[in-house]
Nucleic acid binder design. Sequence first.
DNA 1: GCTTGACTTAGAGTTAACTCTAAAGATTAA
DNA 2: TTAATCTTTAGAGTTAACTCTAAGTCAAGC
Lengths: 142, 142
Amino acid sequence: MSYSIGEAAKMVGLTAHTLRFYDKEGLLPFVKKTSSGLRAFTESDIEWLKIIECLKGTGLPLKQIKQYIDWCMEGDATIPQRLNMFIEQKKRVEEQKAKWEKHLEKINFKIKYYEDAAQHGDLNVFERNPKLLEEKKKLFED
Amino acid sequence: MSYSIGEAAKMVGLTAHTLRFYDKEGLLPFVKKTSSGLRAFTESDIEWLKIIECLKGTGLPLKQIKQYIDWCMEGDATIPQRLNMFIEQKKRVEEQKAKWEKHLEKINFKIKYYEDAAQHGDLNVFERNPKLLEEKKKLFED
DNA sequence: GCTTGACTTAGAGTTAACTCTAAAGATTAA
DNA sequence: TTAATCTTTAGAGTTAACTCTAAGTCAAGC
């Protein structure tokens, strides 16, 4: 059993247009076509799409995703490259997570700041609460 | 004391080109110019840039960042909108973090998978370790 | 058999966010 | 004062990742 491009698209939360675009970019060399030329997505193809989504969702550009797919198609000789790619990606994700953590602290500060401001209808927050000013300096000093 | 566009750019890790682009897009209405027409960035302007970086770094499009800046320029009446914006942004960041967490699990799985494959020089990982296949199914079932 | 809707391709268009260029003016160091 | 190195503008060009269009083909239900 297999899925049409529209069904596959729905299953992974993309559009058929996007899947065709990926195919054109060489990201879906594994997808076969029926005798009449329609793409037929297998369960295994859907898993490929999920891996692509995972890599795209963690910020890997399509070009590098294609590189990975190409390695997969080349066979066992490229296992070290593929392992290395995932190790690098893990590193990037963790760096990104750390960055977001820092950004989140700033956002939380701003929420505190504007909550006070909203309550009083003005921005004299630091005059009311000088400790917040210290906190701000720490958060934005780098 | 104030900074030239190049100095400011260096301080926040952007290029002078990018800062001019931001200015053109209306993101830097607070930056004043010298009598001879050069932009002069104050300490306070640098802080603005850091907030912009925080919002951009957590995925907010420049258009919406401009909306926030515009609200700031409008005065106290827009405090509720600004508070709301940061609350929404916090929500987005936390959703994104959760997504990345899931992606990271898949990446960690792939690392395990390819480590085994690299050790043996082939991809018969699931024949050697059927438990990994179960783990894979759980990770990619959604 | 016919209609309706999904599929095919090539290729054009869009959007966001830069990124660069050219020509001219400003600033700094020797 | 002069050379080198900024900075200014308007506007063009780039890149990634879609997004859409047109004209035609295919498939499923009646």
